[in-house]
Amino acid sequence: MDPILNIDNLRVEYRNRELGQGVTVALADLSLRVNAGEVFGFLGPNGAGKTTTIQVLLGFVQPTRGSAQLFGVDVREPTARQRLGYLPELTYYYKFLSAEELLRFYARLFRLARGEAERRIDAILKLVELESARRRPIKTYSKGMQQRVGLAQALINNPDLLILDEPTSGLDPLGRMKVREIIDRLRGEGKTVFFSSHELGEVETACDRVAILHQGQLKVVGPVAALVREHQASLEQVFLRMIGYPPTPTPA
């Protein structure tokens, strides 16, 4: 079976702004495959390279070396994102538009037919419970409502792959519940979900497989149950061990 998401020897380096400081390696030869129908958790402490990986997948950052494909298409091609949904960590939307206008705009970018777009907009606004506020400018929304707009836009094209960057970190309880519902629903529909998170408990219950990244390097990847069994510890303990915590005491 061809993987939906394929990362091969991906390396991303940032040139430091200060003179003579060389480069920082954000990702070091990362290779990863995510298959269709999987809910994949991407774990790592802050600065591990999770967001950089997602940025490469979305074409925001050019890799220094290596390649990444979505649905077999190089991520540098816009068409690679045709069947993709993306929910950023924070809300970044045109606040002068209403939720309805924003969704219509994104639907047009996905080249959805007008009738189909309107049907999806109605359904998604109902799903995220923004129906009553659909014609109000987003700038008048509460923070929780704005986050739900984010969820709605990520689903507008009925994506086969949903990339969620820290999906629950900034959400209100209703939003968190919606994310969980959506992940469950997508799993039921056979869709693929790739998400980075700090919420290990959430990952443990939601994910089929996880990868743990630390300092740009992939430490471990595998099914959650297998990892727990192999290390005879909870996912949290596995995670802490992989990132070297607590630090091993140096012999005197």
Binding site: P78, Y86, Y92, Y94, L109, F110, R111
Partner: peptide, 14 residues
Amino acid sequence: EQRTILPLLAKPVS
């Protein structure tokens, strides 16, 4: 600055 470019370029847009 407002990062609206991120969800925009996450769509099939060059």
